[in-house]
Design a protein around this nucleic acid. Structure first.
Length: 228
DNA sequence: TACTAGTCACACGCGACGAC
DNA sequence: GTCGTCGCGTGTGACTAGTA
């Protein structure tokens, strides 16, 4: 069965009622079984669970054979420019600390695969008490609904020792967040472009970056991006 | 040709600090 | 005290270049 990201979300949250459900992680080696209480495997395991759930629901999808590259899942088996789905999980008590994308590789990929900006992000928040995991919330978002500004750059990024590594999310569900999410993909791309101008390593070769992305987007989608 | 080491891309988590 | 922001570290898989 072919589904869109929105239909997948509806099936998971409205029909299957995943929010509030509980689970636990166990590991068995020979005759000894342990319940896992550490959090560093939870994300991968929830992702694996989700794929198994999709198989049980007879939902068409294809996993990316290279687990290290974008996206996690193709929902459209024929058109690889549509139905791109990233799955993210985070510890609800600590907030969303995951990476939206690598800053350099994302910027470069938009030059040739600008349709990537329209990808969907399925985000699952969990709470772990002992070995028990509870699904606290589930969201389906676009990257511009997760990204925002910060006090250092027009786009919130992860910077280590003056080097930008990743694009990171704001806390989109909090009312106390100082910086809100962007309202459109154009606003997000403008902030990414301005960040590239401010960042010394990309400042010099950024003159045509945004125009190339706009041109590539038109070629792939037929739609125009209007960025002031 | 097979193995090793290094690099890259991505993911996850933690502590310090300041604002509310 | 709680929450959000910022800065940082660590781990893993894929890929590639060097070497025996």
């Amino acid at each position: 069965m072919k589904v869109s990201a929105e239909q997948l979300y509806e099936k998971l949250v409205t029909d299957y009622k995943l929010i509030g459900q509980k689970g636990q992680i166990t590991f068995k080696l020979k005759d000894i079984t342990v319940e896992i209480e550490t959090k560093d495997t939870v994300g991968n395991l929830i992702q694996e669970w989700l794929k198994e759930w999709m198989r049980s629901e007879k939902i068409d999808f294809e996993e990316n054979p290279n687990t290290q590259t974008f996206p996690d899942i193709f929902l459209d088996m024929k058109d690889r420019k549509k139905g791109l789905l990233e799955i993210k999980t985070f510890d609800f008590d600590r907030g969303p600390g995951f990476d939206l994308a690598n800053f350099d590789s994302y910027s470069n990929s938009l030059l040739t695969n600008s349709y990537r900006v329209d990808s969907d992000y399925l985000i699952l928040a969990y709470q772990m008490i002992g070995s028990e995991i509870t699904i606290k919330d589930v969201w389906l978002k676009k990257i511009w609904e997760l990204a925002g500004a910060s006090s250092t750059y027009p786009l919130k990024v992860q910077e280590k020792k003056k080097v930008i590594y990743n694009i990171r999310p704001i806390i989109w569900f909090s009312k106390r967040s100082k910086f809100g999410a962007f309202k459109s993909k154009e606003e997000f791309l403008k902030a990414l472009n301005e960040t590239r101008y401010q960042y010394p390593k990309t400042h010099h070769d950024n003159a045509h970056w945004l125009n190339k992305v706009i041109k590539n987007y038109k070629e792939h989608t037929g739609s125009s991006l209007v960025i002031n």
